[in-house]
Design a binder for these strands. Structure first.
Lengths: 219, 219
DNA sequence: TGGCTGAGTTCTGTATACATAAGCCTTGTA
DNA sequence: TACAAGGCTTATGTATACAGAACTCAGCCA
């Protein structure tokens, strides 16, 4: 693995997991020493992070970790609804029904996983990830997939702020199952509607658990 | 201006204007000497180009200019319709009617510009750009704007392949005027429909003028 | 006492030298 | 003559040294 890849992965993880808080200045010498590499590969890593929007160049004085405000979350979900709604519709038109029918069945059994310990929870998140991957594969549109992929980076960051309790995860699994069912049925409008519903509930949950007061705790 | 910015702008322009054809290998020493800079800023420029999708790393053997196939054009316009349709709808909800009413009036007079020489044509393209900018400003969603911005890079590249004759430009101006009118009227569904119509006609025009045979002429 | 100016420091931006790995060509052998 | 193995060439990946710019802080002047 290249040193720049390692630095990129490490910094990306630190930002997403909120170990590097918004506003933190990523000085090149400091970070390169911390990661045990030279400045050259670190700069490439910072370039990639900036291209993704996780950092911004602060007017010639280093790069800083970007903030995510409540307004940003609204904007993120507005774009997410646009992209994933269309993606679900396209998947319903082009996807293989059997694939999504299988995912639907697994998602209906997901509540058994949610109550369990970490390994089971990990299985649940993997299942949701497989649904996303199946949709990506079904729509066969590299540009749309890329747009969603770049969006998911920020969404993971937001998700880390919201406490995903068992109740919300159980409800989310049902919503995901509804999306899979609509896609398996080949019904684009239903798939889009199910996605819209799911995203609105997700957003409500995030905004409910992530109050401005709790937000201050982080920054 | 930084050397890496200069290299990025130069390479980006060369790719968009098809002076660097798809499949061209951008060797670091070769390009750095051509642009009169060192390898370090050139590598940063290549990183940015790769992040944008204009180039790809060819499995450890340099970066090559990405190709745009007919399938890619379909995918590009599918994403474009998704994003710009939603953007037009949001602009209709949130934009200032007077701004778009003014743009509509100017667009209706655009045919006078299209018949003229280069400076007038430049004015026309500037006018269309102002409509895009007005929509971007009206929706007030940085993530959606960013997604459209990254998409436009590829669209400019495609546009260079299509011969924009006066007839198509005149029709396009009318379509743009219809979009501006719908936004000014504050009608989201109409704005989205007008955008969908415009993009479908644009795509038809591109695919009609840009046959696979002509495509071969480039590659 | 407040603001401005200057040197000092520390950062980023760039160039270059070195390390390493991946092709490719050559050569030898079957 | 075809295939494989090895060295050679050339590319990228990395480190480091140097240059330039910007921020800071102290000292001076109004």
């Amino acid at each position: 693995m290249r040193a720049s890849d390692k630095a990129y992965a490490a910094l990306r993880d630190d930002i997403i997991e909120w170990r590097l808080l918004p506003g933190t200045v990523l000085a090149e010498v400091e970070q390169s020493e911390r990661l045990g590499i030279s400045r050259t590969p670190l700069r490439e890593a910072l370039s990639r992070l900036t291209a993704e929007g996780l950092t911004t160049t602060a007017g010639g004085r280093g790069v800083v970790v970007t903030d995510i405000s409540l307004d940003d979350i609204d904007e993120l979900f507005e774009l997410r609804e646009t992209l994933e709604g269309r993606a679900a519709a396209l998947a319903a038109e082009r996807g293989d029904p059997a694939t999504f029918e299988q995912l639907r069945r697994e998602l209906l059994q997901a509540p058994e996983l949610i109550g369990g310990q970490d390994p089971a929870l990990h299985d649940y998140y993997g299942l949701v990830g497989r649904l996303d991957a199946a949709i990506d594969a079904a729509i066969s549109n590299a540009y749309l997939v890329q747009a969603m992929r770049s969006l998911r980076v920020h969404l993971v960051r937001v998700r880390r702020l919201a406490a995903d309790d068992a109740a919300r995860l159980t409800a989310a699994a049902a919503e995901h199952a509804a999306i899979a069912e609509a896609i398996a049925a080949g019904n684009p409008r239903l798939a889009e509607a199910a996605t819209t519903l799911h995203l609105h509930r997700s957003l409500s949950h995030v905004k409910a658990t992530h109050t401005p007061q709790q937000r201050e705790h982080h920054g």
